[in-house]
């Protein structure tokens, strides 16, 4: 999955979005929103301002109109951000404004680049809309180009390894790697995780690793730390332990069960990673 966001700016008091998705993965997803799976999510901000606001999301494959006059003054310039779905493919995305109004595609300048690699949590499983994936929050808050190498697959680490070994991953400032591997085969992880970190390090300046492992699986945390300790000692990776999301004070708000986190969990992961990004890259929001 590559970058999944699309931006344009306009001064139109309304615009219409026409989109189609294909390759919808059917299955049991009581923990993931319909629009996250097969729809889009729309936000806006005023040009020159930093703060984004959610407008709405949609999953029906029909045109829908957004009345921007509810939010902005007449002729005020605004920017719109559209996120695509996570387990289907956005095959068509058209935006229409009146002929009398201005609209232009916005490309993010590649001044800040990141790559998010990981499993189901990084892929957005557990989110109501894709706007709440921690990677997409990072993308819009930092105005960064964020690439996704994420898989809804418990053996995601092997796939990340394959990607780094056999493809041509982008060179980025920061890689954010999910280390939350408790559903994966330990011996595979012991072999592959060091390889992934080494390969990744060749394609980025900083690696931020994170995991959130429930206490009943805390032995996995020990194994993870044993594997990555030498990388930590050599300052090759910074690791954030988010296991408190499964503690009594947070689990009701942030998780569904011992496997999946929700929007609130993603928000807290963003807030932790954001601090590391700012410190490592000296970027501000």
């Amino acid at each position: 999955m590559d970058s999944m966001s699309y931006r344009f700016e306009s001064n139109s008091k309304k615009f219409t979005i026409d989109f189609e998705v294909s390759g919808i993965v059917k299955g049991y997803f009581p923990h993931t929103g319909l629009t996250a799976r097969e729809g889009i999510c729309v936000l806006y901000r005023r040009v020159g301002e930093q703060q984004w606001f959610n407008i709405d999301c949609n999953s029906s494959l029909t045109k829908f109109t957004v009345m921007m006059s509810h939010f902005v003054k007449k002729d005020e310039l605004y920017e719109v951000l559209i996120y695509g779905p996570i387990i289907s493919h956005l095959s068509k995305l058209q935006v229409e404004v009146s002929d009398d109004d201005y609209a232009s595609i916005v490309n993010i300048l590649p001044e800040k680049t990141m790559l998010v690699a990981g499993g189901s949590n990084s892929h957005g499983i557990g989110c109501t809309t894709t706007g709440f994936m921690f990677s997409n929050i990072i993308e819009r808050k930092f105005d960064a180009e964020v690439y996704h190498t994420t898989f809804h697959d418990k053996n995601y680490l092997e796939k990340i390894y394959d990607y780094y070994k056999n493809s041509n991953p982008p060179v980025v400032d920061i890689c954010i790697l999910e280390l939350d591997y408790f559903s994966q085969n330990e011996s595979v992880v012991e072999e592959i995780l060091p390889e992934v970190i080494s390969l990744m390090k060749k394609r980025c300046k900083h690696i931020i690793g994170w995991y959130t492992i429930p206490s009943i699986k805390s032995f996995k945390k020990i194994i993870a730390n044993n594997i990555i300790n030498k990388f930590i000692d050599n300052d090759e990776i910074e690791v954030i332990d988010m296991s408190y999301l499964y503690d009594e004070n947070y689990r009701h708000m942030c998780t569904f069960n011992n496997y999946y986190i929700n929007d609130a969990g993603n928000i807290l992961i963003y807030k932790e990673i954001e601090k590391s990004i700012r410190r490592l890259a000296k970027w501000s929001i």
């Binding site: 999301c57 809309t129 929050i137």
Partner: peptide, 14 residues
């Protein structure tokens, strides 16, 4: 504000 609700005001768990 972009983390509080999914649209105008329908709250996330946060």
């Amino acid at each position: 504000y972009d983390l509080v609700s999914i649209d105008i005001g329908h709250y996330t768990d946060y």
